[in-house]
């Protein structure tokens, strides 16, 4: 008699495969979660404050109250994700016990450990982790991440950092596929990641997990841009519920993510959306306040 196996690597890696071509939206309460589902979100990220507010208010940002997460889980039928602090494996265990679908070990929260990330192999639900370049993505995959996203600079409404990170990841992959065999070990050493994973990526021509874009997406055009640059889907943090008309902006970004190759549809969904969130110039942010620099 065949038995069923839960929580193995294949099952964890296949969850994000089903989210591809879709938009994962940050929500801070059940009402926003319902609006996100109505707008066509493929999943929601449950948190207490969107990154723009975390940035504005300062202080230590932690895992959300389980009560809030469960209320959001009750409100929608689509998958629910939540964030734990980098290295905070107890927060991660709590989130897993709540029965959410995926954990984001996120630099948007204040890191709990400056040296180590969570050992994600020990969990039966998948993790998504941020990365600024291929080496960082590979280290997270090595620790068991089932999904990678660009870090971008969350809460800024400025896409420039996410573009930099996506390009760094895809350039790194391209390099792995074209260098001669004898350079592979040195390249793995330079990337600070495993030789076997470098070989796997070289053979696949892509990461062995799904790659999403996060950090700074504020308009339908931003979403289409990152899809064109090779993202499999999009996280939108502050960009929806900090805009003038969240339902409309949410719908427009969902449509742009599906029809990212069709400028006529992009023009149509971009019309008359009202104010997007107010953006921040990255250079105006003091270096110690940059979220992307958290983690390694």
């Amino acid at each position: 008699m065949a038995e069923a196996q839960t929580g193995a690597l294949r099952v964890k890696r296949n969850f994000p495969e089903m989210l591809k071509g879709g938009v994962i939206m940050d929500v801070v309460n059940a009402e926003q979660a319902r609006i996100a589902e109505e707008a066509g979100a493929s999943a929601v990220m449950a948190l207490e404050r969107v990154p723009a507010d975390i940035r504005a208010q300062g202080g230590v940002a932690r895992m959300s109250d389980p009560e809030l997460i469960l209320a959001i889980k009750e409100a929608v039928t689509i998958p629910v994700m939540a964030k734990c602090r980098i290295g905070h494996f107890v927060e991660a265990e709590i989130l897993q016990s709540l029965g959410i679908d995926c954990i984001d070990e996120s630099e948007v929260l204040t890191p709990a450990d400056e040296a180590y990330h969570v050992n994600k192999h020990q969990f039966t639900i998948p993790f998504v982790c941020g990365a600024r370049d291929l080496g960082e993505a590979m280290r997270r995959i090595g620790e068991g991440a089932a999904m990678i996203r660009s870090k971008g600079e969350a809460g800024t409404g400025n896409i420039v950092e996410a573009v930099r990170h996506l390009r760094a990841i895809t350039d790194g992959i391209r390099k792995l596929t074209i260098i001669p065999e004898e350079e592979l070990m040195t390249e793995a050493k330079n990337l600070g990641a495993s030789y076997e994973l470098a070989r796997e990526i070289r053979e696949l021509g892509r990461l062995p997990v799904v790659l999403f874009c996060a950090g700074g997406v504020a308009t339908p055009a931003d979403a289409a841009l990152v899809m064109r640059l090779g993202a499999d889907g999009v996280f939108v943090g502050s960009g929806i519920f900090k805009s003038a008309d969240p339902l409309r902006m949410g719908k427009a970004i969902v449509r742009a993510t599906t029809h990212y190759q069709d400028p006529a549809i992009l023009a149509e969904v971009s019309r008359g959306l009202g104010e997007p969130m107010r953006g921040v110039e990255i250079k105006a942010i003091p270096e110690r306040e940059l979220m992307a620099a958290r983690g390694w």
Binding site: A2, E3, A4, Q5, T6, G7, A8, R10, V11, N14, F15, P79, V80, Q96, G99, I100, D101, C102, T124, I125, P126
Partner: peptide, 12 residues
């Protein structure tokens, strides 16, 4: 079957 925690693989 539930959420992702209950997702599984099996022989059929």
């Amino acid at each position: 079957f539930g959420g992702q925690r209950e997702s599984f693989e099996t022989e059929l």
